[in-house]
């Protein structure tokens, strides 16, 4: 997590400073013409987020949840729309929790960094905020209202619009659009593997690829060694270029490579013998990331 936070701060810190978001003098949510806004006074923090979203709170806390503001918009047609404004410590944290709840086949929109609208729901990512807009009502007026309010909130927050740069390194062939995830903690179920970027692929058999930013080559090496301690010796074979194919007792077949501060690999495809060329392309792309 620490690595993730540092990474995000380096990447996005300067952008956050320029944003008007979080100014104490202004309301949490904007007025929208034609809608009456009521903002709930309570500011939900990590110790009472459960009061709003019950057990789902645990995962939000893993992504450094800071606070939640709630608001309701109502128009003359009695359409009522709820806005939940979740603020996280960094843009990467917000992307992480947003990516945990997003399906690749949603109807995506240009709102915030990225957003989507489904029946009664419009969710989007904006800088360190995850914005959820919803209504229990149905119909075109509701869907239009979600969109209008979504754009107003996005414009009002005025937050940076970029996805984590490291995602650009993942090869394009077979890549499932909008499948990217950031997993803050315990990747593959190992407590020491934190801050993993994961992308799903559909090329022949489906598989997933991941990158962990180890901060520096030494730390990446440490992670590799620690991971290998969990793999039986007979489950480790060398690939032609020195990288490894592993039989992880919990996660199945994994091909693992490393370059500079990065640890990366593919998993989830038990049939294919090797995706070495894929990994090589990923390594090359990581090498040119700035």
């Amino acid at each position: 997590m620490k690595r993730g936070c540092i990474f995000a701060l380096v990447l996005f810190g300067p952008l956050l400073v320029s944003s008007a978001f979080g100014q104490p003098s202004r309301p949490a949510l904007p007025e929208v013409p034609g809608w009456k806004l009521t903002i709930e006074e309570t500011i939900y923090k990590p110790d009472n987020l459960w009061d709003v979203i019950d057990g789902a709170a645990d995962l939000f806390l893993e992504y450094n949840f800071v606070d939640l503001r709630l608001g309701r918009y109502m128009n003359v047609d009695s359409v009522e729309i709820k806005v939940e404004l979740y603020r996280h410590a960094t843009t990467l944290d917000a992307f992480g929790i947003y990516s945990q709840e997003r399906y690749p086949d949603y109807h995506f929109l240009e709102v915030g960094v990225q957003g989507y609208r489904e029946k009664g729901v419009l969710n989007f990512l904006a800088g360190p905020c995850y914005v959820k807009i919803s209504s229990v009502q149905a119909g075109d007026k509701v869907q239009d209202g979600l969109l209008a309010i979504g754009h107003y909130v996005d414009s009002y927050l005025d937050l940076p619009k970029s996805l984590p740069g490291i995602l650009q390194a993942f090869p394009k062939p077979g890549r499932i659009t909008n499948s990217e995830q950031y997993i803050a903690k315990s990747f593959l179920g190992y407590g020491f593997l934190s801050g993993s970027y994961v992308v799903s692929y559909e090329e022949g058999e489906p598989f997933k690829s991941f990158v962990i930013d180890g901060e520096n080559p030494g730390q990446a090496q440490n992670l590799l060694e620690k991971y290998l301690e969990n793999i039986p010796k007979e489950g480790i074979t060398k690939l032609s270029n020195g990288w490894l194919k592993l039989r992880d007792p919990h996660n199945g077949s994994i091909e693992l490579g490393w370059k500079e501060k990065y640890l990366f690999g593919v998993y989830g495809d038990e049939k294919r013998t090797s995706r070495l060329s894929f990994l090589q392309e990923l390594a090359d792309n990581l090498g040119v990331l700035k």
Partner: peptide, 14 residues
């Protein structure tokens, strides 16, 4: 087991 994450089926299998 209270399953709170969707990204690691291996944990549930274990």
């Amino acid at each position: 087991f209270g399953v709170m994450r969707a990204d690691n089926p291996a944990l549930v299998r274990a």
